[in-house]
Amino acid sequence: MPTNKYTEAEIEKIIKEHIVQNFMYNRTDISFSNEMLLIEAGIIDSISIFKLASFLEEKFGFTLNSKELLLDNFESVNAIKHLVVQKVVN
Rank of each mutant, 00 (worst) to 15 (best):
F74H: 00
V89N: 03
N4E: 09
N4V: 12
K59Q: 14
F60W: 10
T7I: 10
S31C: 03
D45V: 12
L69T: 09
L69R: 03
F23S: 06
L64N: 01
I15P: 02
K5R: 11
K81Q: 15
Y25L: 11
N26M: 06
E10K: 10
K13S: 12
N65V: 15
E12P: 09
K13G: 08
N26L: 08
F50L: 15
S33N: 05
E8I: 07
M24V: 04
A53K: 09
K81S: 14
A41P: 00
E58D: 15
P2C: 06
N78K: 06
K13L: 07
L64I: 12
A79I: 03
L71N: 01
L70S: 07
D29G: 01
D45W: 07
I80K: 08
K16Q: 08
D45G: 11
Y6S: 11
S66K: 10
G61K: 12
A9P: 04
K81D: 11
Q86N: 15
L70A: 06
L38I: 07
L70T: 03
I80C: 09
V88N: 13
S46Q: 05
I47E: 03
N26A: 05
K13V: 02
I30N: 00
I39A: 01
L56G: 15
I30M: 00
F74I: 06
L38R: 04
S54V: 05
D72N: 08
L70E: 05
E58M: 13
S33M: 01
E68F: 06
S76D: 06
